Structure formats: C-alpha cells, structure tokens
Simulated scan of single mutants.
Amino acid sequence: MNYLSLSDYLKQTYGQKVYKISLQSGCTCPNRDGTVSRGGCIFCSEGGSGDFAAPLLPINEQIDFAIKKVEAKLPAGKEHKYIAYFQSYTNTYGDTGKLKAMYAEALSDPRVAALSIGTRPDSIKDDMLETLKLLQAQYGKKIWVELGLQSIHEDTASRINRGYTLPVFENTYRKLKEAGLTVIVHVILGFPWETEEDMLETVRYLSSLSPVLDGIKLQLLHVLKGTRLGDEYLRHPFHVLELQEYCDLVVRCLKLLPKETVVHRITGDGPKKLLIAPLWSGDKKKVLNTLNRAIKLS
C-alpha cells in the first residue's frame, strides 16, 4: 500500500530531507487557564504536548539551540532545512502582535523552510487568521496550522475535556483553507471507550472534507504520569492497544485517506519518564519497523 508520507512530501517539495525543530511561544491554553476549562485535556502532560521542545528563550536562540541538537546527529558540512514547529499548548492563544513578531522571526531565518503552529480550532481569531495569511505571503514560506481534533465523536470530546464541538472545528477548517493555509489534523487512536469503527469513522470524516485535508497525524493514545487519564489508569486499568492491534488499525486508516493527504505521523513519542502505558510504545525502532512491515504487506 502506498501513502504520501511527510518525509516523501518534504523531499518532493524542497528537494532534500527537512527536519522539524520544536519551539515554544510561551502561550498557555484556554483549556487550562479557566477560559474554557481547567486542567487541559485528560491525556495532556504538564508540558502541553511539547515535552521535547527547546527551552523558552528568544526565538532566534531557540532555533539555534534546536538546530545544534539536530545537527549533532547529522554529517557535518551540509546545509539543512528545518520546519519551525511551535508545538506545546495553544500557539494562537495570546497577543496577536507578540505572536506575529515571533512567527516573523522564525520565518525570516534562512534555515527555516516552513512554519508549523499547533493550536485549537476555538482559539484562532480573525485577526490571527489574517496575520498568518499575510506572513505566508510576505515570506513566501508555507504556514501549517495543526488542529487537535482527536475524535469526531462528541462523547469522546466530553470525556477528554476537549472543550469545543465538531461544528467549531468545521468552521475553523473552512476559514483556514479559504485563507490559503495548510491544515493538519491530529487524531488519537486508542481511547478505551471507542470501538475500532468509531476511530475509523473519524478518519472517514476527515477523508471526506472539502477542500481536501492537507495533512493528518495518527497518534497512539499514551497514558502518561501526571495526567488525569494516567491517574484513572492507575486506579482502574483499562485496555490499551497492543502493538499488532495498533498496526492493523493504522493500515485501515491509511487506506481511507485521499492520496493527496500527507501523513505526518503514524505513531508518536511519549516521554519514557512519564509513560505508563502502553509500554511497547517506548521502543520506537521496533514500533516503526512493525508498522512499516504491516503497511508494506497490506
């Protein structure tokens, strides 16, 4: 089975391998500060899903710090390109002027090929939307907006304390696409109350979006220490997907996607020091090898 992986897409677009560096904007989240709710989504760690991000320094220093870490593992003497990824918390939730300056600084770095912004569909105001549209035109570099949907099911949205309904996502998706921005949607596979069919329904829905979805991240549910989901698991352990279950499910998801949709992720990393379950997910090499074998054989 063939699908458009992020690695292949980046090589096609930029003519070389491109690396992602995780940065911080210093934003919080309306699902943590009381605007929408408190405590965040039940699966989200204190790092706000940005446990691997660079320290909170001026943007140029964050970029230098993150690039040095990446380049320490790469052959010397070659010029590399990077995606500046504002990952943790909600990176459009704050003062638009300050965020614009941060994003402009990242985009102005010649090593940065594109900008990726993790956020929520209910936290993109019209002035922020216009700002992103103008920055993309000004710097001639793609801006990706990553939306944490996780599931289309309202029961799941309530259980995970997501804090917004599906129509909010649909409205934001439409506005982002009309602005010419690239949209990537996060989906979590493995909520214990969802059936396999429930999870496939989420992917079918995303596959039917018009305009066509630019990118998707398929993420295994990680149960982490210090989260409400983790506390619940320690009190009353629930079923988490086994490796083969997860591989079979990913294959079924990939078969549903349009050929134009870029698959940015087929698994994910939970910090090993925080990981409670599933423990098999901590062996990234084994997971990726098993996934790739399952995809190749499908």
Rank of each mutant, 00 (worst) to 15 (best):
E105V: 07
N171T: 15
N171W: 10
I124T: 01
M199N: 11
A137N: 03
R204G: 15
A114N: 11
A106R: 08
G140F: 00
L135G: 00
T92H: 07
V168R: 10
Y89V: 09
H80I: 12
F191W: 08
D198K: 01
Q136E: 06
P192N: 05
Y89T: 10
T131I: 13
A76E: 13
Q136K: 01
M199C: 07
Y93R: 11
R120G: 01
L209V: 02
G118Q: 09
F169R: 13
T156N: 07
K133A: 01
R174L: 14
Y89W: 15
A157C: 14
D122P: 05
E194A: 05
I117D: 12
R120W: 04
K133I: 00
L129V: 00
D198M: 06
G140V: 00
M199F: 09
M128Q: 04
R120S: 02
L166G: 07
E196F: 11
E154R: 15
E105I: 06
T195Y: 04
L107G: 02
V145P: 08
L134H: 07
T96M: 13
Y139S: 01
D127L: 10
P110L: 03
V183N: 06
E79C: 10
H153D: 13
D95V: 09
D122H: 03
G148M: 09
R162G: 09
W144K: 10
G97F: 15
Q87T: 04
V112P: 01
Q138G: 09
E105Y: 02
I184H: 13
A106D: 07
M128R: 02
E154A: 15
Q138Y: 05
Y164K: 03
S210H: 12
S123H: 05
S208V: 10
K141S: 08
E170P: 01
E79P: 04
Y103A: 10
T92E: 06
L135Q: 00
L115M: 00
I160E: 03
K125N: 13
G163T: 01
E71S: 12
Q136F: 00
V183C: 09
L147D: 06
L107N: 02
G118P: 00
S158D: 15
Q87V: 04
T92C: 09
L181P: 00
P121M: 01
K78L: 13
I143A: 01
L149R: 09
K81H: 11
E196K: 13
F86V: 04
A84G: 03
L176H: 04
D95Y: 10
K125W: 14
G118L: 08
G180C: 03
T90I: 05
R111F: 04
I184F: 12
A137T: 06
G148H: 01
I160L: 10
G140T: 00
D122R: 02
K73L: 15
F191L: 14
Q138A: 13
A72I: 10
G163I: 02
L213C: 07
G163R: 05
N171P: 00
P192C: 04
A72S: 14
Y139P: 03
K125H: 14
W193H: 14
V203T: 08
V187A: 05
L206I: 07
L149P: 10
E154L: 15
F86E: 06
P192V: 05
D109A: 12
S123T: 13
V203F: 08
S108C: 11
G77Q: 06
Q150A: 03
M199V: 10
S158K: 14
V187H: 02
